[in-house]
Measured scan of single mutants.
Amino acid sequence: MIINNLKLIREKKKISQSELAALLEVSRQTINGIEKNKYNPSLQLALKIAYYLNTPLEDIFQ
């Protein structure tokens, strides 16, 4: 099972779900679904998340 630290990292960087969704060009519901482990992001989306949060991919999804 993948450990998902997206919410923790996003909140630590003081970025809202809506702000991150806008940067990634996805819906806020997509971010919410990823954070609640209801949706697994594509590799492309996971890499974009890591880029915009300036955090290694391995720290977000373990």
Rank of each mutant, 00 (worst) to 15 (best):
N40M: 15
N54W: 05
E11S: 08
K48W: 06
S16D: 04
N5I: 07
E25Q: 15
Q62M: 13
S42L: 03
S27K: 08
Y39K: 08
L8V: 14
T30H: 09
L24N: 00
L43F: 12
Y39A: 07
P56C: 07
L6K: 00
T30S: 05
L43R: 13
N54F: 05
A22F: 10
L45Y: 02
N54T: 07
E19F: 09
K12T: 11
I9F: 10
L20P: 00
E35G: 01
Q17V: 14
I3L: 11
I60H: 01
L6S: 01
E58F: 09
S18V: 12
K38R: 13
K13A: 11
D59Y: 10
S16M: 05
E25N: 15
Q29L: 11
L6M: 11
Y52N: 04
L20G: 00
G33Y: 14
E11R: 10
R28C: 11
L57N: 02
S42R: 06
E19R: 14
L8H: 12
Q17E: 04
F61D: 02
K36D: 13
L47Y: 09
A22R: 15
R10F: 04
K7G: 06
N37S: 12
E58K: 10
Q62I: 12
L57C: 08
S27M: 04
S42C: 07
L45M: 07
Y39R: 09
L20I: 04
N54E: 13
L57Y: 10
K12V: 08
L24A: 09
I49Q: 00
Y52S: 05
A46F: 05
A50S: 10
K14A: 09
I60C: 03
L8A: 15
T30I: 15
N40R: 15
Y51R: 10
D59V: 11
L8E: 13
L57E: 03
A50F: 03
G33W: 15
I2Y: 13
S42T: 12
S42G: 10
K14P: 03
L6T: 02
Y52D: 00
K48Q: 08
K48N: 05
A22Y: 08
I9W: 08
E35A: 02
N37F: 12
L53D: 00
Y39I: 15
I2C: 15
G33T: 09
R10N: 01
N4W: 04
E35T: 03
L24K: 01
P41R: 02
L53F: 07
K38T: 13
K14L: 09
E35M: 03
R28I: 15
E11H: 08
K36P: 02
A46Y: 04
Q17R: 09
S18R: 15
Q44N: 11
N40T: 15
Y52C: 08
V26D: 01
I15S: 01
I49A: 03
R10P: 00
R28Q: 14
I2S: 10
N40A: 15
L8K: 15
L57G: 02
L6D: 00
I34Q: 02
Q17Y: 04
I60M: 05
I34N: 02
I49D: 00
Q44T: 12
K13P: 01
I49V: 04
L20E: 00
P56T: 07
Q62G: 14
V26G: 02
K13F: 14
E11A: 08
A21D: 00
I34H: 02
L24C: 15
N4R: 04
V26C: 07
L43D: 06
N54H: 09
E11L: 13
N37K: 11
I60Y: 02
A22C: 11
I60V: 06
G33R: 15
Q29K: 13
L53R: 00
Y52G: 03
Q29D: 14
N32H: 11
Q62P: 15
L23A: 15
K13E: 06
Q17D: 03
L57M: 11
K14G: 15
E25G: 15
S18E: 14
L20H: 01
E19N: 08
I34M: 05
L23K: 09
L43C: 14
M1G: 12
S27E: 06
K14Y: 07
I31S: 00
R28T: 14
I31P: 00
I3N: 10
I2L: 10
A46V: 06
I9N: 03
S42Y: 05
L45K: 00
T30A: 07
E25R: 15
E19C: 10
N5G: 05
T55Q: 05
P56I: 05
I60D: 01
K12F: 10
E35D: 02
